[in-house]
């Protein structure tokens, strides 16, 4: 008996539709979030992550309704991220049926927010989302920095140090996205994933770059990720979650089938 590695389909939602961009631009429509979530639930997804990437905050009510509709019909854990800026945002999402909330830029402007959130709601529902870009040169030891604003704005914050600090502050899980790899479909940044996973004592979700099923297995086996997240390989019907799990099992990885 052992804990299974998780496969998490991710829904990037813009104005009420699932979309998927390549390196945060070039958006393609991939359907209605509730229908997409139900499909992944039926395929055996271990969790679902819902990232609201709508630029304006006008559509928060829409997002809350969608989270409610998903939570009414999908009985696996649901993480909601995007625009989580205050305690009230977290409460709204949890009340709508989310199990965890992912905090990203609000933690950068106010790290104490993560501490307050974990104290208030418990570490189990606070995920720190990190958008990482490699800043070391070829041949140098790996170094990654956090970027905001869709990858345009450097913050000067070292990713590994940040992951340690945020988990010390009470974040119960790390959602780690490589912005270099995101949408490129050439696999996770394995070195980054491994560096963060070995540095923290909470589960790490690898994200960004999955183009085939072997990439998912590599994230676990070589990247030491506890969970792997992917979007487009599932959205456009290339693979089902079930196929992904069968492949991971054939690679000797413990999965829930």
């Amino acid at each position: 008996m052992a804990l299974a590695k998780r496969i998490i389909p991710c829904l990037d939602v813009d104005n009420g539709r699932v979309v998927k961009g390549v390196q945060f631009v070039d958006i393609r429509d991939a359907g209605d979030p509730v229908e997409v979530a139900k499909r992944y639930d039926q395929q055996g997804a271990d969790e679902i992550t819902f990232l609201d990437i709508t630029a304006s905050s006008d559509n928060r009510a829409t997002t809350i309704h969608m989270v409610e509709a998903i939570a009414d019909q999908v009985f696996i854990p649901l993480t909601v991220g995007g625009g989580i800026r205050c305690i009230e945002d977290i409460r709204n999402m949890l009340n709508a049926g989310a199990d965890k909330t992912a905090i990203n830029s609000a933690a950068i402007s106010n790290p104490e927010f993560v501490k307050q959130a974990a104290e208030k709601f418990g570490s189990q529902c606070i995920v720190i989302a990190i958008d990482a870009k490699k800043v070391s040169k070829e041949g140098e030891p790996g170094k990654w920095e956090i970027f905001t604003h869709g990858g345009r704005k450097p913050t000067g914050i070292d990713v590994v140090e940040w992951a340690i600090k945020m988990t010390d502050f009470g974040a119960g899980e790390v959602l780690l996205t490589s912005m270099d790899q995101d949408g490129v479909k050439s696999g996770f940044d394995i070195e980054l994933t491994r560096a963060v996973s070995e540095a923290v004592n909470v589960p790490v979700i690898a994200s960004g770059g999955v183009g085939n099923l072997q990439h998912l297995a590599d994230g676990v086996t070589n990247g030491k990720a506890d969970a792997v997240l992917a979007a487009s390989i599932f959205h456009f019907g290339e693979y089902t979650v079930q196929q992904a799990k069968e492949h991971m099992r054939s690679e000797g990885i413990e999965v829930r089938l």
Partner: peptide, 27 residues
């Protein structure tokens, strides 16, 4: 415990993350 070290199967000798988060079997 921190650290929590696995004792059987694929977890033997591996440092396990805490919280115990995810899908596990029940006998």
């Amino acid at each position: 415990g921190n650290p929590l070290i696995g004792t059987q199967g694929s977890e033997d000798g591996v440092k396990l993350k805490v919280p115990h988060m995810g899908w596990n079997q029940v006998k």
